[in-house]
Amino acid sequence: MSNIHVTTTINGDETEYVCRPDESLLDVLRDRLGMSGTKEGCGTGDCGACSVTLDGRLVCSCLVMGAEVDGHKVETIEGMADGEDLHPLQQKFLEHAALQCGICTPGFLVAAQSLLERNLDPTETEVRYWLAGNLCRCTGYDKIVRAVLDTAKDMRKVAKKSSAKKTAKKGARHAA
């Protein structure tokens, strides 16, 4: 079985690797690229610990082949914070004690980010169903759901302010 050469973009960086045709994206990330932030809990797409986004779509990286992402864009937990600045979800997970052991946390964060990109005003039920593909055995989900709802609330405020600013700027320009 000969290896396949892949060129892809991971967290904004162009990345090249070779992998076997039967190798999952999860194995490529962890074993070939040293990106062990993405976790394996089951290898069968049932636990969501290996969640990443592929061209903006939330997927289980254990169910994607490494060779499939050639020419596509992958985002992982390692790309979530902006340097020293945590993403608001990461900060809220810490403040709400939304993790105990922390093994499921990268998957939950990637999945929650994917939700908030689509819907910045989710109901509790919407959060619960969106995150139903991610298993957590420690927390009983309570603090995770609270952290996501709280982040959404803060991000809405920020979005409102920045759109108000934009409107104000536009208004100022018109006035001039």
Binding site: R30, M35, S36, G37, T38, K39, E40, T76, I77, E78, M80, A81, L86, Q90, F93, L94, E95, A97, L99, G102, I103, T105, P106, L109
Partner: peptide, 17 residues
């Protein structure tokens, strides 16, 4: 906030595997 918190929300924490 826990001392191991940032490592666990950024994927830096090292687990068994």
């Amino acid at each position: 906030i826990r001392p191991d918190g940032i490592d666990k929300v950024t994927g830096r924490a090292r687990f068994g595997a």
